Amino acid sequence: MINKVLINASNLHFGGGVQVAASFINDLYDLGKFDISIVCSTAVLNNLSKHIKFDKFKSFNEFNVFGLNKLKKLPQDIFDGYDLCFTVFGPFYFNIKVKKHICGFAQPWIAYPKNKAYKNLSSFDYIKTKIKFSIQSLFFRQYDHLIVEQQHIKNALIDIGYNKRIISVVSNTVSSIYDSPESWESIVLNKNKLKHPITLGFIGRDYPHKNIKILIEVNRILNEKHNFYCNFLFTFTEEEMKRNNLLDLDDFLSLGVISIRQCPEFYNSLDGLIFPSLLECFSASPIEAMKMNTVVFASQYPFISEVCKTAAFYFDPTDANSIASSIVNAFSNEKIMEEKRRIGTKIASELPKSHDRTIAYLSIIKNLIK
């Protein structure tokens, strides 16, 4: 009997989830795993390799699912009737008729319910966020199996009552696109808008735990206390820039949302990645930067240091002076900067490849079907 397997990435529309899903589907194609059905969002579809022939898969559908509020019913012919569904990252808020359901977990707000990121929220947003993640946690607890990206997340989930027997760890990694320069696409950057020779950048979306607003104070301290000037470059929408009060600041600018194929060139345009996050399960940005020989400035928290080790310049993300000092000290010593680049490139080269992650996913799928 042939088992019917569905890979579900219909609910992923931006950020690292899109990258992982696209990389996974690309790998399935390269490995010749055509006995699998795929349903993915437009965002994931747009980031797939151009050489993929979709009709080779058992079935391939483009379909967009947006939370709970924009769709009342899923088409049964796309989602129902499978022996197993793997939702690359959840939660997936709809009850689909499958025998087993695996779901990727990347929600640190649930794993760490007592975190510093809550301090950045208003009272109303605090309550709203608590309710939101309580609901999400109920969905996550219903899946037959969860896949997390680092051991510390599995440990954290066990500590809050999740069943350790249904949690597997599969490390995230650098997308295969970084090993294929012929697939890279250029970014549209008006260099006339860059006022200073040094550019620090942040790639990703504007989530509260990313702690972006502190960079306004960091920039003030750099200018007034250290006589140090740099550009801060983002991949935010205009609305995200406005929400962080960055839209009218001369030293802050954005390219807008970029594709996976443009990410390598984004890192190439930087003198350093700035990553002041307060909370992560795992972030690919620092290791992608290291892969591209870009210096990393990041929060001194385990979700970064476990991967970057001694390759990054670390700071206290709640202290603007700490962030500013780490930047100034780094750029005043090119020898140390070059050593950090060397260590980072070595670490990135020794990490598992995307194919390794795909093989691990397939192994979990196979074992759960058995």
Rank of each mutant, 00 (worst) to 15 (best):
I7C: 02
I7G: 03
H13A: 09
S23L: 09
F24L: 13
I25T: 11
K33P: 07
I38R: 05
I38Y: 01
V39P: 12
C40F: 04
N46M: 03
N47L: 15
N47G: 13
N47F: 04
K56T: 07
K56I: 07
N61L: 11
K70V: 04
K70N: 11
K70M: 02
L71M: 11
K72P: 05
K73D: 04
P75L: 12
Y82T: 03
F86R: 04
F89I: 02
H101I: 11
G104V: 00
F105D: 15
F105M: 10
Q107D: 15
W109Y: 14
L121G: 13
D125E: 01
D125R: 02
K128I: 14
I135E: 10
Q142L: 13
L146H: 09
L146C: 01
I147C: 06
Q150P: 07
H152I: 14
N155D: 15
S168C: 02
D179T: 07
D179F: 11
S186R: 00
K193W: 08
T199C: 05
G204D: 15
R205C: 13
D206R: 08
K210L: 08
K213S: 07
L215A: 05
I216G: 05
R220N: 03
E224R: 01
H226R: 12
F236I: 06
T237L: 14
R243A: 14
D250G: 00
S254A: 07
G256D: 03
I258M: 15
F266I: 14
S269N: 08
L270E: 10
L270I: 06
G272L: 06
M292D: 04
M292G: 03
T294H: 03
T294E: 14
V296F: 12
F303Y: 12
K309C: 10
A311Y: 02
T318V: 06
D319R: 01
D319S: 00
S322A: 04
A324P: 00
A324M: 09
I327F: 15
V328I: 15
E334S: 05
I336L: 00
M337N: 08
E338R: 00
K340N: 08
I347P: 13
S349C: 02
L351Y: 03
P352F: 04
K353C: 08
S354R: 03
Y361Q: 07
K370D: 14
